[in-house]
């Protein structure tokens, strides 16, 4: 039973999955008002949030592949298998863009490490509007 639930109401959300809190804070600042950031510690926490009845309508997932409990590939396998969640856009944060598994991953967008927060914010905005 995860503790965190969506609290910001019906504004576009970034579901930030991973433990890079520094990057998360910078992204919050870069996106500015009109966006809310919902952190998730790991893939299971993220799935619990996506399955929560209070889930907002507009979400962009920013996903780290390396996480404890349920890592990024596992999270995506579960999310894509769920017809209610499979439409949600995902930005993959990776330092292994050339990795075969990442290539096959088929995320809507990639952001390479080291993260340039301005680039990430632009990608999030674009997907959020799309």
């Amino acid at each position: 039973m995860s503790d965190a639930i969506w609290t910001a109401g019906e504004v576009p959300h970034v579901l930030f999955v991973g433990d890079e809190s520094g990057c998360r804070d910078e992204l919050t600042a870069a996106l500015g008002a009109g966006w809310a950031i919902q952190p998730a510690n790991d893939g299971i926490h993220a799935m619990d949030l996506l399955k929560h009845p209070n889930r907002p309508a507009s979400i962009v997932v920013v996903l780290d592949l390396s996480m404890p409990v349920l890592e990024g590939f596992g999270f995506e396998k579960a999310r894509r298998a769920d017809s209610e969640l499979s439409h949600i856009p995902v930005v993959l944060v990776t330092s292994h863009a050339a990795d075969e598994r990442v290539k096959k991953f088929g995320a809507r967008a990639y952001v390479k490490r080291p993260i340039v927060v301005g680039d990430l914010a632009a990608v999030v905005r674009e997907l959020g509007e799309g």
Binding site: M1, N41, D42, I44, P68, V69
Partner: peptide, 8 residues
């Protein structure tokens, strides 16, 4: 276990 899932 190395990590906990948070599930009870």
């Amino acid at each position: 276990p190395g990590t906990r899932t948070g599930k009870r």
